[in-house]
Design a protein around this nucleic acid. Structure first.
Lengths: 343, 343
DNA sequence: CTGAAAGCGCTTACAG
DNA sequence: CTGAAAGCGCTTACAG
């Protein structure tokens, strides 16, 4: 058994400094009413005793946990393999610490569990606010958080009630519109799309942007050529092989994740399709994979780091000022690479 | 301004149930002395009032935060891009929630900040224990945690004092030994190594294993052919080009990260070297990259998920039973793929 | 500018 | 099996 060092409390400091607890407390919270002399004396005693305020005790009385809960999506087990999440997480932790908050991280296996975690965090008063790293169509977690009016922010877009829900997102509609238009300008006329999980808001938006761009290019939007399903390696192969079975084979494909695109590219190459000559490939996330692919892939950088940082800005305002319905659109960048550039 | 719903406290439940606070508290903590009748009555009142115990208040009196701090390494900015970390994180959060702990996550930009975060966590009583996701030679964070005897565990190996420090690791020495021996059995006689950051313990161990295997194979260990430096894309290109400038060019190279290996492979191919005929490539982490590479890369799977889970097991025992110096070795698997198999 | 007192929401010996 | 009381380490009106 280890010898438990008696913890130094505010009281000890007060006694040593010959002042009241109130005064010490005020020095800690930098209350300007305390005289410089007293402040200095107290500070010195704190130093000498090695005193550190107990965050738990402060939380109890101030009713602020000083903590933000971050909920990783349950959608896909390999979600964390997608560099989007770690990158956004980095933005979150970084900005949070600057804003004086700690991050409570949770992963979960399914939506029920996700909701349970959220309720636990809220009911136990462990967090002051919550960030949802993704949102689904008809997301029950979003609905719950809205219904109890607990401070929260979404990375992504809510299905509905966007004017009441804090969220930060790229303009996925516009990004996909631009990407598609770029392909049509390059002369592509038969464009397929591997769009991701249809229960995700992002998927919905991207398909809309895709559709709009085709229409404006006087190309037919063919629902049959929009493939939806979970994001993983298999998906890439699977849909890519369906696509190559089409007659005629599409001359371009937009894929909503580099990982999936990478897998698709491999199949195309196995089938001796030349990229971009026979089929152009454009994807999202601009991960290292897209740069390392052969040929390098044109990809939309969604700037996950910024999304994470802005999510913290939103949640802090929600917590400290009660703000709701703030919306931030962060810029995306289309990196044009060999996979779509034939010249 | 939102109407602040008065929070339901234990007292409210007590009043409604017509019992004392003590009794309600005992029901919460499932104290077996409370009669079934009373328990039921209290439970019913809790239900009806929508009562949930306040974790902060419990923490204050029980002196347990119910939280484990996880420190991401500061070594490399793109550390989170390496799938090792997200994967380990998933193991951590998953097992932690099963053990009744929440995870406080921190990233930081440098070692000083890392130490500052650790001190903050400890001094403010926000965490019951700390997991370090990597360890350096002469790691000041390890030294600090040891000196104050705060419960902590390392994913990786400590530089010294291993018998007093809880840690979970692969046998990196053995893994690299095996990998090297495998290459020598395949007839490779001139093996180089891109070993990673020399300040990391893992680098040290792997180099030792490499050396040992060469000696046992009666091959000369040439310090000149062990390249150390930070883990990033550039490193791959850089050292790969140094290697290809050697005369004769090595017939195999071991690279301690898939990402770096991937970059190296690209350069080899640009220089028209055939893999594995001219140069075999073996790496670590078995990320998706290694499978997607052309040719697919032989890679050591370190099983990051398990490392994360075991780290929680260690820290929980450290917190709840005061255990120190526990050591867990988790198995690695060498996935042999085309990049080393010529036949 | 400073202090005494009450209280944040719980737990835990102690007593019965 | 249950309750009254003290206390965890802080903050914050209130009073001066």
């Amino acid at each position: 058994m280890l010898i438990k060092k008696k913890t130094v409390t505010l009281k000890d400091v007060a006694k040593k400094a010959g002042v009241s607890s109130s005064t010490v407390s005020r020095v800690i919270s930098k209350n300007p009413k305390i005289s410089p002399m007293t402040t200095e004396k107290v500070l010195k005693c704190m130093e000498e005793l090695g005193y550190h305020p107990n965050a738990i005790a402060r939380s109890l009385v101030s009713r602020k946990a000083g903590t933000i809960g971050v909920i990783m999506p349950s959608t896909s087990k390999d979600a964390l393999l997608n560099p989007f999440f770690p990158e956004a997480l980095r933005g979150i932790t970084h900005r949070a610490s600057k804003s004086g908050y700690d991050i409570l991280l949770s992963t979960n296996d399914n939506k029920n569990e996700e909701l349970a975690v959220i309720k636990k965090y809220i009911n136990s008063s462990k967090v002051d606010g919550i960030i949802l790293m993704s949102s689904e169509v008809q997301d029950e977690c979003v609905e719950y958080l809205s219904s109890v009016d607990f401070p929260f922010a979404i990375i992504g877009s809510p299905d509905e009630g966007g004017d009441r829900i804090n969220h930060v997102d790229n303009d996925n509609y516009m990004a996909t519109y631009e990407l598609t238009r770029y392909l049509t300008m390059k002369g592509r006329k038969n464009i397929a799309m591997i769009a991701g999980d249809l229960s995700l808001m992002v998927t919905k938006k991207r398909i809309e942007g895709f559709k709009k761009a085709l229409e404006e290019s006087n190309l037919k939007f063919d629902q049959e050529k929009v493939y939806t399903g979970s994001f993983d390696e298999k998906t890439g192969y699977q849909y890519a092989s369906i696509i190559t079975d089409l007659k005629p084979i599409p001359d371009a494909v937009i894929i909503t994740d580099d990982l999936v695109a990478f897998a698709a590219v491999r199949l195309f190459k196995q089938l001796k399709l030349e990229i971009p000559k026979d089929i152009a490939v454009a994807s999202f996330n601009n991960s290292i994979l897209s740069r390392y692919s052969n040929p390098p892939l044109t990809s939309v950088d969604v700037n996950a780091l910024t999304l994470g940082e802005e999510a913290i800005n939103l949640i802090v305002r929600a917590i400290e000022k009660g703000e709701r319905g703030n919306k931030i659109i962060t810029p995306h960048i289309i990196y044009k690479r060999k996979s779509t550039e034939d010249d």
